[in-house]
Design a protein around this nucleic acid. Sequence first.
DNA 1: TTGAAAGCGCTAACAG
DNA 2: CTGTTAGCGCTTTCAA
Lengths: 335, 335
Amino acid sequence: MGVGRITIEDVAAAAGVSRQTVTRAMNGMPEISARTRELVLRTAAELGYRPSRFASNLAARRKSRSVGLVLGSLRNPYYTELAAELLDVVAPRGWHVLMASREQGDDVELVAALSGQADAIVGYFTGDETALVTAARGVPLIQVERAATVPGLHAVVLDFDAAIEALLGELRDRGARRFGLIESGGPPGEEGAGAYRPTRRRRAYERFADSDSAGRVVVADESIRGGADGLARLRAAHPGVDTVLVFNDLMAMGAMQQAQLDGVAVPGDLRVVGVDGLSLGAVMTPPLSTLSIDRRAVATEAADIVGTLLDRAEPPPHPPVVRTVTPRPLWRESA
Amino acid sequence: MGVGRITIEDVAAAAGVSRQTVTRAMNGMPEISARTRELVLRTAAELGYRPSRFASNLAARRKSRSVGLVLGSLRNPYYTELAAELLDVVAPRGWHVLMASREQGDDVELVAALSGQADAIVGYFTGDETALVTAARGVPLIQVERAATVPGLHAVVLDFDAAIEALLGELRDRGARRFGLIESGGPPGEEGAGAYRPTRRRRAYERFADSDSAGRVVVADESIRGGADGLARLRAAHPGVDTVLVFNDLMAMGAMQQAQLDGVAVPGDLRVVGVDGLSLGAVMTPPLSTLSIDRRAVATEAADIVGTLLDRAEPPPHPPVVRTVTPRPLWRESA
DNA sequence: TTGAAAGCGCTAACAG
DNA sequence: CTGTTAGCGCTTTCAA
């Protein structure tokens, strides 16, 4: 690296052999005598030779594929379980996964950084679509949750409208009457950016809840603490709420903790429902009911879009490819 | 791409300009007229030109660094929080992180696959050290938890001897007398491999517990269910146990759940202590006491080793560089 | 503002 | 078994 990188040429010269012989030794190829191989390996080690992965990938015309993955956070199991699923899905195809998290920086910057290393980028984006596509420099972007409207951008949409309508219906069947929502105000620490915009989950809630319930919304930090805090504020402002829908499971866990602290029985006094379907929710007391997002399906669809796009003969940017996954209620005991 | 990849040359020909002009347009360089740039960009899009990241990295002599990260599982927050910390630590230096999980395959295979893409690989390895170093083909390996004994391998060691000795002492001060251990038998699904080997945590436990306690060990699946199952078996075999140390927090959560099912009060009837220090433990009822591993410190040390090694002028393989992190008890309420 | 030449470091294909 | 010859696809000089 930098000045005077040790190249295959240096090793060849030092060992008194040809470049090709060095290649054969380094890559454990067969057509070489044990002695020569050992000699080469030793001198390579002595010189500190480290092959350039760029040169070797280029020369070998390998088309090792790697997909970038931009997550909202690595501290929320929802995202990491999605990563786990994506890894499971792409590993058999021999693809690599490059991780990035929005905690590290801006959407667009991350995409720009990854675009030089990845053949496609899937992720949770919040930035401007055009800016994202520009930053991607031709690398296809697969956006999860949000729809895609510009060429070069594709999507695995989560249909929260259908899901939340169904959920509220089932909750009413179970006796729920006065709903409230704890909405996410974005990742912790990002407050003050003043950039709060209603999420699709909130919009779906407001659309399908009765009009009184639609007004009972508090915005809180997207974290366990935020959920606890949110519940405290929701109950203070709207004492009569009997059912609370929480932006995600992590926040719902905080809300449950807060309920316990306040002596509110769940689900007796208050039903709590999260969103995500984390397996950890089953360990709560009581186990958390949730609107479960099938992460395996999301990963499969995303990988499938990537595969389709990369194998396509026609020139990109391709018109948006969109798949839909609909979250489903997972009834445990908190509601 | 397979046959007939579209290269910069094709674009140049189609646009009637030189390769260099295409480069300038694609990379947003200044020395080009707006018209030409637009023309080039358009024909590039029409042809579906996608630059080869290998060629461009090679030619530009970029030394974009990427570190591979091999985790035990992406479904255990311990590992993903470690990943989060590592990302935080390396992102400012502009390094990328390539993820892999042992759930996808063998240690050695993963290292072999990553070695062509990463400049260093840090991870939780269980395979044979020599085999790992061979698979790494000169790429430095930084092993977490286990010590490193062969050149090319380095380590961030977790000092469980010191940690568990201290932990048991503090537990005795709190009145604990009859200890038991729920040990990991490895990742779920891997049973039958018959490859169980006592972990360093178990060995430390057996060394520092009284001899009766040292015998009270059950081996269970490394999962929430495994922890639940382990506690059931431990209590059946050794009814008098008043304190149980669990291999990790995830398993400890399962154990707590089982205790609740069985009507065993925690910590009144049974103290439960996990290992890892997951923040999620704080949401349990009661909050989980644990032997906390400072993941930020592990990530920092690992990144530091990587930085040192890659900037070193002397030839690798370097003699092992070893740093140590000592876990510390984090008292919440379960013990 | 544009183009021509000269590699980047490595491996495939072919000889010997 | 080993060496030679051509590139891989792009970016950097340096001229024009």
